[in-house]
Simulated scan of single mutants.
Amino acid sequence: MSRTLRYTLLTLLWVLVGGYLLFAALSARRARSGRLVERLEIEVADSSSRGCLVSSARVREWIGRSGTATIGTAVDAVDLPALEGLIARNGFVSSAVAYVDYAGTLRITITQRQPLLRLRTDGVDSYVTAEGYVFPAPKGSSLYVPVVTGSYAPPFPKGHAGSVRECVDAEIGRIAERIAALEKEKYPLYQREIENDRRIAQLRRRRIKRQWWRFESAGDFERRVAELRREKAILRRSYRYEARLIGQEIDALARRQEQERLRQKKLEKSYEDFAKLLTFVESVESDAFWRSEVVQIVARTTPAGALEIDLVPRSGRHTVRFGRLEDAERKFDKLMRFYRGGLSRIGWEEFRTIDLRYNDQVVCRK
């Protein structure tokens, strides 16, 4: 067989294969366009023993309330991106993927977020992930995660859903804009201040000379000098008063700026405490003994703005005053030594409070 004939046959073969694939694709498309959605199947990909935030029944309820057409609708008419967006806008849903298979089944696969703890403090009832993503607890939800209660004020508003870091950064940015706006308010005051200083300088340079060419007498000259002095005194008082007013307005704006900067610092410190709380809960959950021993974490914000916690253990009737979250590992070691060397001999029901807030000592109260 000649080379030309071989190339011709190969080309013809590939043309036939391409034509067949195109025909098959068009046939499949025609068949799909005429097919209706017959079933709806919803799968929560990461349901676990810790609980499930989202169920197929709840997703069906969302779809029903939205009015999105599904069963009985032409396959090509189903708005899959809208379905995915409808489901994913719930904060506890990490992702949603929807597609229709060739059997006419609309399949939706959902990945839910994995909370680290539940925060029920200061009017907030939200789940928080280890990455610092927060979302309001769905009604009727109950996951097996640590619960943090108390008067602690977290660094995000009630009902917030999203990254706490991004929420804090956005608020810090808004505060920075207010600081910049206050700085701009100073510009006209600076101009007034410069103009007032110029007038004061001009006033100091004002002098009068005796008008010899008019044969001005000494008495007339003294009268003019006295009049100038009185005029300069009045103007000097006026300019000094204006300078004082300008200074007070600038100082007032500066105080407002300082208050905004203080808000930024407090907000950043609040976020640092929030991150420490997440790290603390992770450390408790990673230790088999403390995970089973710590029943409840009570958090509070001190008047100085710091975060302190108490622990409610499973054993005994006491409360552990843990204090701030610095040196958490050292405090747990100190508490464990006291459990083994103290309470195991004295009795677990002896004390009401065990205080770990002091260096190298454990203070107990009955």
Rank of each mutant, 00 (worst) to 15 (best):
Q114A: 13
A181I: 03
A226W: 06
R199T: 01
F156P: 03
A24D: 11
K232G: 05
R165C: 00
A176P: 00
P154T: 05
E227K: 11
R60E: 15
D355A: 04
A45K: 09
G51R: 05
Y271S: 01
K331T: 00
L36Y: 15
Y190E: 14
E166F: 05
A82D: 11
R224P: 08
V134E: 05
D220L: 12
W212S: 10
T105I: 11
A137I: 05
G323E: 01
V44K: 05
R291I: 00
R30G: 08
E268R: 15
S142Q: 11
F156M: 06
E131I: 01
T109I: 11
V124K: 06
P154V: 07
K366D: 09
F322P: 00
Y133L: 12
Q257H: 03
R244Q: 09
A201Q: 11
S2T: 10
R39K: 12
P81W: 07
R352P: 00
L343V: 01
S48A: 12
L356D: 02
R357A: 07
S49R: 13
A180N: 06
A180E: 14
D125E: 09
R206Y: 04
D310N: 14
K266M: 13
I200V: 14
T129V: 09
R198S: 12
R3F: 08
T8R: 14
E193G: 08
V78N: 11
D310T: 04
F135Q: 09
S141L: 06
R229A: 13
K232Y: 06
L21Y: 08
V294R: 02
D46V: 03
Y187N: 08
I309T: 05
R39P: 00
V100N: 01
R229N: 14
V37Y: 04
E242M: 06
T73K: 08
E308C: 03
L36G: 03
L40D: 04
V17E: 10
D122R: 07
W212E: 14
K184P: 00
V312Q: 11
V225H: 01
T111H: 12
Y99D: 11
R224W: 08
S238A: 15
L235H: 05
P146E: 00
G132E: 07
L325I: 10
W348E: 09
D360L: 10
E282H: 04
Q361W: 00
Y99A: 10
E231N: 08
L311Q: 01
D251I: 00
G132R: 04
I172E: 13
E260C: 11
G51I: 06
Y339R: 13
Y7K: 14
R174G: 08
L21F: 12
S49A: 13
M336D: 02
A69M: 07
V75C: 15
H160Q: 02
R261Y: 08
S55R: 04
G150R: 12
A96Y: 06
A299P: 02
F92V: 03
G91D: 12
G159T: 07
L189F: 07
P81T: 08
E171W: 10
A74D: 02
I354T: 02
R204F: 04
L26V: 13
R224A: 11
V54Y: 04
R58E: 11
T8S: 12
A176M: 07
D76N: 13
L80I: 15
R330Y: 02
Q114D: 15
Y239W: 05
R118Y: 05
Y20M: 09
